[in-house]
Nucleic acid binder design. Structure first.
Length: 581
RNA sequence: GCCUCCGUAGCUUAAUGGACAAAGCAACGCACUUCUAAUGCGUAGAUUACAGGUUCGAGUCCUGUCGGGGGUACCA
């Protein structure tokens, strides 16, 4: 038996081939192989039902005909159930063979899950310069990093680009405030970014108060974009200060970028966007601005995409279009993934529509465009989260508090631990908990932020997964000085817990491909959590250190694979693992 | 107004159009002389907001109602 990393491929190929050999099956037959409830088997084929319906035959009879025609195998038992499901129960021998075969999931995923590696650009995190990162930035940063890791794990070529908001209207306001207050950037003290934020807040208040301030602020942006030396100097300095503060956070989170081009990088490329869009009659002038209407769209026929403001300044639609072209031309992007808040859905829909028309007119192939959007983090009041005094919660404070709280829990469990080790574990646990909370539920949902929930160490949480890894490691430490049998001595899984665990291991590729397909890390989280619970049951019922060599060999193998898959999965999620907890 | 997302156990969530809707928390009961109890096992808990429809089959798709979030021309 040659094992496929993804077992559904074996079964699907088998059923398609068998159906082709039968007179009753003509034309396309999709077997629809799905995971089965454990009480029915391991996999099930649902495809006979719709097929039989289509050609007006009895589905149970059709399923029976396929089953009769299947070649004999010791790899699985086949049974007919319900209205016409075909259930497959993997044999112990198959399970053992499969588990033994795939000790290097990264290698297997790279060849089995992705037929043709793509050039993928992931645009994520993207904070605004001149402001500190706050909780609002955490989701894009963590989800983006995780997707980048997943793509790379599965063999794609990934470019991570931090598309900084360093060229927008907020700079007009900030520059206006700096000048009005006559501030020197060298005298901002210990926490320059916090001072800049205060200035920005003042500026925003002024522009809301009166029209002339707003006009002046807008003019500062126009000046900046026109290359005014003073404004450019200020802008550059502000960007440097901001990057320093971002880097500190990224290092804490284990996030890295290949580029941080930001909107400003495209400032010399926006003119060609206007020109080209005008030339192809994709945009038009309306109320002094340059806009794109999509007449075929029920909503965007009236709600335009603004590519140039009436004051002549560019905005994020312009830079996004210029960026798209750059990524295609310079990086040969075949797919671009934008990880942003769900409130930008309209923008990206309009952007993608516009880009398609534009690329089409220019006879360029357009990359696959995906807007990976997520919900809002809410406070206790179900409104977007703020501190008590209405300020955004600083990300660095939140992360430090997570580590501090985790630290207390580590000490409580193990009071004798040296400070250095406490700190190491607290980092892994605290930051892991924060990340996992964000990744483990469907990204499109809003969620209410609460420390209690974030740092719960029971249930579907990072510490639970980390604990499972630590327990497996503990077994291996105990076995270190023993002579242990190699995996070639292993007997097939027999006990219910051995079987359940082995079966779950074979589902790993499915979890990866589903996450890849939907760009939703929670699928991987759910899988890892289930793998951990299956391991914990196994751990409590079937001891690894037993006399029987064949049994011990199998159980060691199951532990080794469980650890490898858990560690790979957590690595993809950007969560550290610990040898001891 | 128009558009869009959401409504699942007391709470937080899960569920590619497939079989009796799955977990955790909280509650109750059980299991540490044992490879880490940050655990495991069990009990109890659900007209999947409501009303129709499509389908062999609907939490999932369509229409409508109710309730909540978000977007809707120069912020991103």
């Amino acid at each position: 038996m040659k094992f496929n990393f993804d077992c559904t491929e074996n079964l699907e190929a088998l059923l398609v081939k068998t159906a082709e050999s039968l007179d009753d099956f003509e034309g396309e037959f999709d077997p629809q192989i799905r995971l089965a409830d454990e009480r029915f088997g391991d996999f099930q084929a649902n495809g006979v039902l719709p097929y039989a319906k289509k050609i007006g035959k009895n589905p149970r009879e059709m399923a029976q005909r396929i089953m009769d025609a299947l070649p004999f195998t010791e790899d699985w038992e086949v049974s007919l159930a319900g209205p016409g499901f075909i259930n497959f129960k993997l044999s112990p021998g198959f399970l053992l063979g499969w588990v033994e075969a795939f000790g290097q999931p990264e290698e297997a995923a790279g060849t089995a899950l992705v037929q043709k590696p793509k050039e993928i650009v992931i645009d994520f995190s993207s904070p605004n310069t001149a402001k500190q990162m706050h909780v609002g930035h955490i989701r894009s940063t963590i989800i983006g990093e995780s997707l980048a890791r997943l793509m790379a794990f599965c063999g794609h070529k990934v470019t991570r680009d931090n598309h900084l908001g360093d060229w927008g209207t907020q700079f007009g306001i900030l520059l206006y405030a700096i000048k009005r207050e006559k501030i020197s950037l060298d005298q901002l003290g210990e926490d320059p970014i916090a001072q800049l934020e205060n200035l920005y807040r003042k500026g925003t208040a002024w522009t809301k108060e009166d029209e002339s301030s707003l006009a002046e602020a807008r003019n500062e942006l126009v000046e900046l974009q026109a290359g005014n030396t003073e404004n450019l100097e200020l802008w550059k300095k502000i960007k440097e200060l901001s990057m320093d503060s971002f880097e500190a956070i990224y290092e804490m989170l284990g996030v890295r970028f290949d580029y941080a081009h930001g909107e400003s990088f495209y400032r010399d490329r926006v003119d060609q966007v206007y020109e080209s869009l005008l030339e192809h009659k994709i945009c038009e002038e309306n109320e002094g601005a340059l806009v794109v209407f999509h007449l075929e769209h029920k909503r965007f026929c009236k709600q335009p995409l603004l590519v140039r403001k009436k004051d002549g300044a560019s905005n994020y639609a312009t830079t996004d279009l210029a960026t798209l072209l750059f990524r295609k031309e310079e990086w040969q992007a075949e797919q671009i993934i934008y990880v942003t808040d769900g409130r930008q859905r309209d923008h990206f829909e309009q952007l993608f529509l516009t880009a398609r028309k534009w690329f089409d007119a220019e006879k360029r192939a357009i990359p696959q465009l995906d807007h990976v959007w997520f919900g809002t983090i809410l406070g206790e009041d179900n409104k977007a989260i703020k501190t008590r005094d209405g300020q955004p919660v600083k990300l660095v404070d939140l992360l430090n508090e997570a580590i501090e709280r985790a630290s207390r829990m580590v000490i409580e469990k193990n009071p004798e631990l040296p400070a250095e080790e406490v700190s190491k574990r607290a980092q892994a646990i605290g930051l892991g908990a924060v990340k996992y909370a964000d990744l483990s539920q469907d990204r499109t949902l809003d969620y209410v932020f609460s420390w209690e929930k974030l740092l719960a160490m029971q249930g579907n949480t990072a510490p639970y997964l980390q604990y499972a890894v630590a327990r497996i490691s503990s077994i291996f430490r105990k076995l270190e000085n023993e002579e242990t049998p190699g995996s070639e001595e292993a007997r097939p899984p027999e006990t219910p817990h051995e079987r359940t665990l082995a079966r779950k291991l074979t589902f790993f590729p499915l979890a990866l491909s589903q996450t890849l397909r939907e760009l939703k890390p929670h699928f991987l989280c759910t899988y890892l959590y289930e793998l951990s619970t299956d391991f914990s049951s196994f751990y409590n019922n079937d001891k690894v250190m037993v006399e029987d060599r064949r049994t011990q060999s199998l159980r060691i193998l199951l532990c080794r694979r469980t650890k490898t898959y858990l560690c790979s999965g957590l690595e993809i999620l950007g969560i550290e693992t610990l040898e001891e907890m």
